[in-house]
């Protein structure tokens, strides 16, 4: 009767392979989860900063409107509240980070306001990649 015997060392090799697979898979899972978490944290922090910027601009605009309602000129009211007057609207700015500023414009007569983010960082084009531009 012929006995089926595994070649010597095959069990050890299988164990080493299984350990290697477990290590690699767990590390991949960990790095992917970590990057997912940092992305979510960055996104949440960004939302918070934008909301805070908006909140601060509205606070300044509120102060300016109160002054305007007391009889200040639009220019005086805007400047007293920390903003500026561009001839048509009061403009309030609040820095969100080094590249972005939250801007709120307010027409004191109609009370209409608008908010937007202005990018103030300098953009440097990447010239490292050779791209055919048609010439």
């Amino acid at each position: 009767m012929k006995r089926n015997i595994l070649p010597p060392g095959i069990i050890s090799l299988a164990v080493v392979f299984v350990c290697l697979c477990l290590t690699v898979l767990s590390l991949l899972c960990y790095t992917s989860a970590k990057s997912e978490l940092s992305l979510a944290e960055a996104s949440a922090a960004n939302k918070k900063k934008v909301l805070e910027g908006s909140f601060m601009c509205r606070g300044l605009a509120d102060t300016a409107m109160a002054l305007y309602n007391e009889g200040y000129s639009p220019e005086q009211a805007a400047e007293s509240a920390g903003g500026s007057w561009n001839g048509e609207e009061m403009v309030f700015e609040w820095g969100i980070d080094e590249n972005r500023v939250m801007v709120l414009t307010l027409d004191p007569q109609s009370g209409k306001s608008a908010e937007y983010l202005r990018y103030v960082g300098t953009w440097t084009p990447d010239t490292g990649l050779e791209v055919w531009d048609g010439q």
Binding site: S26, Y30, A40
Partner: peptide, 22 residues
């Protein structure tokens, strides 16, 4: 590996919560 997988699962859940709640 199990502890690393569990830690990764916690981080993933935290990321999901943060994203949804924000």
């Amino acid at each position: 590996s199990l502890s690393v997988f569990m830690k990764a699962g916690q981080m993933r859940r935290r990321a999901e919560d943060l994203s949804a709640c924000s």
